[in-house]
Design a protein around this nucleic acid. Sequence first.
DNA 1: ATTAATCCTTTTAC
DNA 2: AGTAAAAGGATTA
Length: 289
Amino acid sequence: MKFELGDVVFDLDVSLCCGQVFRFRKQKDWWYGLLGDKIFKIRQVGNCLEFEGVDTSFVRGFFGLGDDLTKITQCINKDPYISAAIKQFEGLRLIRQDPWECLISFICATYKNIAAIEQTLFKMSQKYGEKCCFDGQTFWLFPSVEKLAGASVEGLEACGLGYRAKYVQVTAKRVWEERIDLESFRRLSYVEAKRRLFEFSGVGLKVADCVLLFSLEKMEAFPVDVWVKRILLKQYADQLPAGLVEQLLRHDSLSNAEYEKLGTFARNYFGAYAGYAQEYLYHYERTKK
DNA sequence: ATTAATCCTTTTAC
DNA sequence: AGTAAAAGGATTA
């Protein structure tokens, strides 16, 4: 299938490489990806998207092609620094992931680098997910709630989860036993959905913000990891509340209070699409020189 | 080749 | 409320 982008600005490679998704692989010029029980491949040829395994409305929804990116980038374009990031990664869009997979993925992602996260999630899917064939290749779907709820901590540890194994286990068990519908969190406000996510084991403010931004379409979510903290301290120090910079420099970790101060600053400064700003800044910082 | 630091942090315990 | 330490292990320097 084909989809002409027309005046829709989109860069498939940048959107898939900027650290939002962990289970996309590029083979030759095709990206192979999974969402729920769907497996598909997609590539961008000029201003046209070509794909197999899913329909046009899925592609539009999944890659956020309905977002008015021109308006969004204008809104967040507040200074020369982010302006450079927006310019360099024109076409970067936030992807709409599955909330369950997103929640578990970011619980697994804490204090890990992206390569290690990808490896862990692959092992976990291989062990607990459903095996599927597509385009002559083997894929494993992301494990269901029921499957992970029944997994042992030892079994999860064997996937390289380390101390995160028990968080995954406890969270999965709770989602399963209480029949929690994570999709329904979409209807809650940012603050309310964040509070609900925060209750899960292994979910702090950062993981909650990632789930809110990457799967629940809360664009005011502004995940602050070590990279974003670094950017804020370097590029936005003089605009942060008085004393906060000195406080942050005193120690390495981020307290919840400090985290929320940075998030509040970002939402005030960048506006309703602060999450988009975060993704441009994050990718820009990670890839420069 | 080895070693050390780092990693899209959270939890637990002062 | 604020701070510090611990939690595996792959990747990167």
